[in-house]
Amino acid sequence: MDETRYKIVFDGTLMPQTPLETAKENLARLFKSDLARIEALFSGQLVVLKRDLSEGEADKYLQALHNAGAQARKESDLVSSLSLVETEDHPGAASLAAAATEPAADAQRMTCPKCGHEQAKASECGACGIIIDKYLARQAELAATQPAEPAPAAPRAQSPYATPQAPVGEALPEYGELQYFSVQGRIGRVRYLGWSMAMILALIPAFALFAALTAVSHTLGALVLIAACVGMAVVSIFFGVQRLHDIGWSGWLWLLNFVPVVGSVMALLMLLVPGTTGANRYGPPPPPNSRGVVALAWASILVPIVGILAAIAIPAYQGYLTRAQESAYSQDQDYDSAATAEPQADDEGDEDASAVDTDEPSEQ
């Protein structure tokens, strides 16, 4: 029994929370076409994007379309599975035998006059789905009515229903535009760490200004501090939402950072979960990381480690100095007490000697 074949169909429905313009741009990159041709896919009618696929191939195309924001689905392709007409991918036993015994079997193949697809002779094109006889008749009518300017055969890329020119599942070479102060777009884990470190470094001049103004006026210093804290919070929201978009999650999940316990887990997930490799419903992938971003990301990791080590080492060193000073002080005290004890002993000996001398004449 032949393997079940599938087709990919699309009726213009989008994945949840996917903007229409974003989905159109993703599909245009995916099919290597322009937006004008992609508009035809959103007419509300059911469109067959790909036919005669195995289950694995259909799942691959379906996943790529879902990542692009199109809620396509796969259905059994009864035409390819049950049709008695032989196709290129499923030749009949008679054709196989003829190909093995007759070198002239190439004469039984044909080329679609519209998209150029080569296949076994059939009344319908397996790639673009046209009825060949009707298409040729229509072309003949156009040639008869306009002999001066014959209508050229439409290239394969002009049809929005044609097979994509490249494998759908491959990584897209195009990248999205970076937006520092927006909740639109995507950033990866390394850029998220690097940008966060750059924001912290940018706050150092703000705190220095706060200290200088506080010496002059406490009100001005407080205003500068409040403005710096609010700006840091807003920019942190921008960075966090774009990081969640890169994973494929909604930006509203950033609010989980305020939930006790759950917030700690959410922060770890934002640092550890990798982003989607291709385009998703929030746009194309971010561009590669620059050296500056990588350096800032490493700094954001090493600075806390150095701070923890310093917090452990500095008190231990201070304790060592304190113990050394106490030991030296105790030795000095012992030496002083010993030095003061020796003269007292000599004075007592002299007193005893004088007492003996004064007693001896009285005895005589």
Results as ranks from 00 to 15, higher is better:
residue 126 G to N: 09
residue 201 L to S: 05
residue 332 D to V: 08
residue 160 P to R: 00
residue 177 E to N: 01
residue 143 A to P: 02
residue 169 G to H: 08
residue 296 L to T: 04
residue 272 L to K: 07
residue 277 T to C: 01
residue 125 C to Q: 04
residue 305 I to D: 06
residue 20 L to M: 08
residue 171 A to V: 14
residue 207 F to S: 04
residue 355 A to G: 15
residue 225 L to G: 06
residue 215 A to G: 03
residue 201 L to F: 09
residue 249 W to M: 09
residue 324 A to M: 08
residue 146 Q to K: 13
residue 141 E to H: 06
residue 355 A to W: 14
residue 90 H to F: 15
residue 63 Q to F: 09
residue 200 I to T: 06
residue 131 I to Q: 09
residue 205 P to D: 04
residue 150 P to H: 02
residue 351 E to H: 14
residue 250 S to A: 10
residue 6 Y to R: 09
residue 246 D to H: 05
residue 264 S to H: 12
residue 323 R to P: 00
residue 271 L to G: 04
residue 74 K to W: 01
residue 311 A to P: 04
residue 265 V to S: 07
residue 113 P to S: 02
residue 231 G to C: 07
residue 220 L to D: 01
residue 256 L to M: 11
residue 4 T to D: 06
residue 117 H to C: 08
residue 150 P to T: 08
residue 178 L to N: 02
residue 216 V to A: 03
residue 208 A to N: 01
residue 91 P to L: 01
residue 21 E to M: 10
residue 364 Q to C: 07
residue 47 V to E: 03
residue 122 A to G: 10
residue 77 D to L: 02
residue 232 M to E: 05
residue 49 L to P: 09
residue 359 D to K: 14
residue 292 G to A: 07
residue 18 T to L: 06
residue 142 L to V: 08
residue 261 V to E: 00
residue 132 I to L: 11
residue 111 T to V: 15
residue 351 E to T: 13
residue 319 G to K: 11
residue 239 F to K: 04
residue 44 G to E: 00
residue 160 P to L: 03
residue 345 A to R: 15
residue 322 T to D: 09
residue 276 T to I: 13
residue 257 N to F: 10
residue 294 V to N: 03
residue 227 A to L: 07
residue 117 H to V: 05
residue 167 P to D: 10
residue 294 V to C: 02
residue 309 L to S: 02
residue 359 D to S: 15
residue 51 R to E: 05
residue 346 D to F: 15
residue 178 L to K: 00
residue 104 A to K: 11
residue 40 A to V: 04
residue 143 A to L: 10
residue 252 W to L: 13
residue 279 A to G: 07
